[in-house]
């Protein structure tokens, strides 16, 4: 058994050596391990956000200044090739009705456990955001807007792959006193 030994005890007095009982201690550790193993969550769930951009009712007490339209990234999913392994995308930056930039790319889809990922698309969006994105300051509470266009038959897993690629560019974002990394875009769907 384990014990705590302190020198200088004895001499007719009660010994200062005391025994720590190991059995209940090991029992406690075993119970804690069992509890934590049973309650452990091995698959972590999270969420990915999209914004429906519903405007609030107009306020009659405030005078509305004319606001310069901000550039928005329109990502359009094109047709697939090579049996779904390659997909074409159109990346268009628009401000109001005017088009700022357009690029058509073909990217390789990477499939992992039923999930589709587009690493080339995220790299391309990141480089475009570095050139055209407006909201970069940590104190800026707004995010650049991305609009996702897809046909009606595209599976949800591919939409999530594209949204995940759009969220790849990161910027600093101030939350209270702390500055954290945040995705540079807000995503919404184009309704056709």
């Amino acid at each position: 058994m384990g014990g705590v030994s302190v020198e200088g005890g004895g001499g007719g007095k009660k010994s200062v050596n005391s025994e720590v009982n190991m059995v209940p201690m090991i029992d406690l550790l075993m119970c804690t391990i069992s509890f934590l193993l049973i309650t452990a969550v091995w698959s972590q769930m999270a969420r990915i956000n999209a914004d429906a951009q519903v405007p609030g009712p107009p306020r009659t007490d405030q005078q509305i200044d004319k606001v310069e339209p901000e550039p928005q990234l329109h990502v359009t999913l094109g047709p697939t090739q090579e049996g779904g392994k390659k997909r074409s995308f159109s990346l268009v930056w628009k401000a109001g009705g005017s088009q700022i930039k357009e690029e058509k790319i073909e990217v390789q889809a990477v499939e992992e456990k039923g999930t589709v990922k587009y690493p080339e698309l995220s790299a391309k969006i990141e480089s475009q955001w570095n050139e055209t994105g407006k909201h970069r300051e940590a104190s800026d509470k707004k995010f650049d807007q991305a609009v996702l266009h897809s046909d009606n038959t595209t599976p949800y897993s591919e939409l999530i792959g594209v949204i995940d690629a759009i969220y790849a560019p990161q910027r600093q974002y101030k939350v209270g006193e702390k500055t954290e990394k945040a995705s540079a875009f807000n995503v919404t769907f184009a309704m056709q």
């Binding site: 990915i48 956000n49 429906a52 999530i160 910027r171 954290e180 945040a182 807000n186």
Partner: peptide, 24 residues
């Protein structure tokens, strides 16, 4: 009346972003 729509996914590697995708 639910403009902030989140999609539940399984989390894979990488660091979590704070805002942007979390505007809701």
């Amino acid at each position: 009346g639910f403009p902030n729509v989140s999609f539940m996914v399984n989390k894979t590697g990488g660091k979590k972003p704070a805002g942007g995708g979390g505007g809701g």
